[in-house]
Write a protein that binds this DNA or RNA. Structure first.
Lengths: 110, 110
DNA sequence: TATTTATACATAATTTGCTTATGCATTTAT
DNA sequence: ATAAATGCATAAGCAAATTATGTATAAATA
């Protein structure tokens, strides 16, 4: 990932939120969607994404489903019930964090 | 640092922005200011802060000044010219990054 | 007045979360 | 024919935190 530096810790909520919106996605598709949604700003690397997906699956956040497409196999991921709860929580934490940094962008309070 | 997770990479811009606003601060003061400004949300750990300050000084971003207060020695940090430029840049990158994540918080584009 | 908490610095070991590099295989575009 | 895109995966290395520890003074509190 990169172009504008990726601030670490964001990849997980990004992926989970995407899965929540889109329902069911495979790894490569996630990289392309993020690239699109961020107008090329964020480029997720596979070295970051795949291990994360594996970890989230192991934690019971994601379910997987293999699908043969043409001659290739795609691995689709979707949120479990736990994963949906986890997403809500991750988003709340993210928002709170962003909120707590508002002072950085506000004009000085005279 | 912690309470809400600290997303990695934010500490540097936070510290630099603070120094830009306040002019001249010592380490402990920075931890207290951040705690105040974030209403207790972000608690900077010394293990993160001091090495960062040392690194920024080494990179020519910060100047230091020792001051004896009572019986203790405080080490004051302030931005150099390079540091002020660096702060502007760091803030721009941060804002661009935040901007590129807007889609995560916006209601679905029907 | 003894003890804890706050102030003030610092460093080392460890963990986390990425990047970079590599590998393999198929499909599409040049 | 060759390169680029699609699709998965893992390993090595690095940077930025956390956690733990150490030292010392000052102020608050039991």
């Amino acid at each position: 990932m990169k172009k504008s530096t990726l601030y670490k810790g964001f990849l997980e909520p990004i992926v989970m939120k995407l899965l929540k919106e889109q329902g069911r996605m495979y790894g490569y598709q996630i990289t392309q969607e993020v690239k699109l949604l961020t107008k090329g700003e964020l480029q997720i690397t596979e070295g970051a994404l795949y291990p994360l997906l594996h970890r989230l699956e192991e934690e019971g956040m994601l379910d997987t489903e293999l699908k043969e497409v043409g001659n290739r196999i795609r691995k689709y991921y979707s949120l479990t019930a736990k994963g949906r709860k986890g997403t809500v929580q991750a988003m709340e934490e993210l928002q709170q964090f962003m909120g707590s940094l508002q002072w950085m962008f506000q004009p000085k309070i005279s």
